[in-house]
């Protein structure tokens, strides 16, 4: 009686087929980008459909670098994404600890005050923030890019609270009996036990910050202060008197690679770390 295992393996095969098709379809829009990035710029528009670079070359990267400070953009992206991530963690981790492990008047109200901010679309705050940035003469500074991007921490606080709550109370009980203060409980017991959670949040935050587009477009003016994702938008040429597809695709590829590497190396980790975060224990 091998009917059940057979049905199972057919079932499994079907799942693989669906997943494979979906994965290919998902990745496909990027195929042209990759092939164009390595195709000589002069022949890119000669054909509408190109799945493989003809006459592969790296020249698009050098053309892009000679026109725009793309390495500076890369550095700016790394810098701003790192600062935004650090800022979010500095705010969210202690807050999550207090909301998760301390009793104090107003805890519930303050928690919901922070959590409810998750429901604000970022575009809503853009105009007043923009006016403030302009009026404070902070226009076109890294600060203008970084600081207003930090307080979107609703998810982070919620998640850190869950992470701290999921730790067994006995751990902290023991420390309290040993005479550890709150700060030491936080630093020596809390944080070391939620490292995977912090790492997962860092990766998510870094990827999000790396791709900040609308706000960056608005407040970064100087060509040398742009990030990769905002710089890519400046490839749009006024007259269209030349074809920039090759260098544009090369720079786009450059903007993907770092986050892709981070994601691939951390993906297993993220999934594992997210799991306990959302479930109630």
């Amino acid at each position: 009686m091998s009917a059940v295992p057979l049905r199972r393996s057919i079932h499994r095969l079907l799942i693989h087929a669906v997943l494979l098709a979906t994965s290919l379809a998902t990745v496909f829009p990027l195929v042209w980008m990759v092939s164009s990035a390595f195709t000589p710029n002069e022949i890119i528009t000669a054909r509408a459909v190109r799945l493989w670079p003809e006459d592969p070359t790296l020249s698009n990267f050098t053309i892009a670098a000679s026109r725009h400070p793309i390495w500076m953009w890369l550095w700016n992206s790394v810098l701003t994404a790192t600062l935004i991530t650090l800022g979010k963690l500095l705010l969210a981790v202690p807050a999550g600890f207090a909301f998760g492990r301390m009793e104090f008047p107003g805890r519930r109200a303050l928690f919901w005050f922070v959590i409810a901010s998750m429901s604000f679309p970022t575009v809503l705050a853009i105009i007043p923030t923009y006016i403030a940035v302009v009026k404070m003469q902070a226009f076109d500074t890294y600060g203008a890019m970084v600081i207003p991007s930090i307080p979107y921490i609703g998810f982070y606080v919620f998640y850190m609270r869950q992470a701290f709550r999921s730790l067994p109370a006995s751990m902290f009980e023991a420390a309290r009996i040993d005479g550890s203060g709150l700060w030491r409980q936080f630093m020596e017991i809390g944080i070391p036990n939620v490292v995977p959670a912090i790492a997962a949040l860092s990766v998510i935050s870094f990827m999000g910050a790396w791709n900040i587009y609308l706000w960056g477009q608005l407040v970064l003016e100087d060509g040398f202060k742009k990030t990769l994702t905002t710089g890519i938008a400046t490839f749009a040429d006024l007259e269209g008197t030349e074809r920039v597809w090759g260098p544009l695709m090369a720079t786009s590829l450059l903007s993907i690679v770092p986050v892709l590497v981070i994601f691939l190396s951390a993906q297993r980790f993220i999934v594992d770390a997210l799991a306990p975060g959302l479930d109630e224990r």
Binding site: L91, P94, A95, F97, L110, V114, F120, A125, P151, Y152
Partner: peptide, 16 residues
């Protein structure tokens, strides 16, 4: 512990 988070949310999200 919660002050910086609450303040920053108040200023940058509720303020606008």
């Amino acid at each position: 512990f919660v002050g910086p988070a609450v303040l920053s949310v108040a200023i940058f999200l509720y303020g606008p």
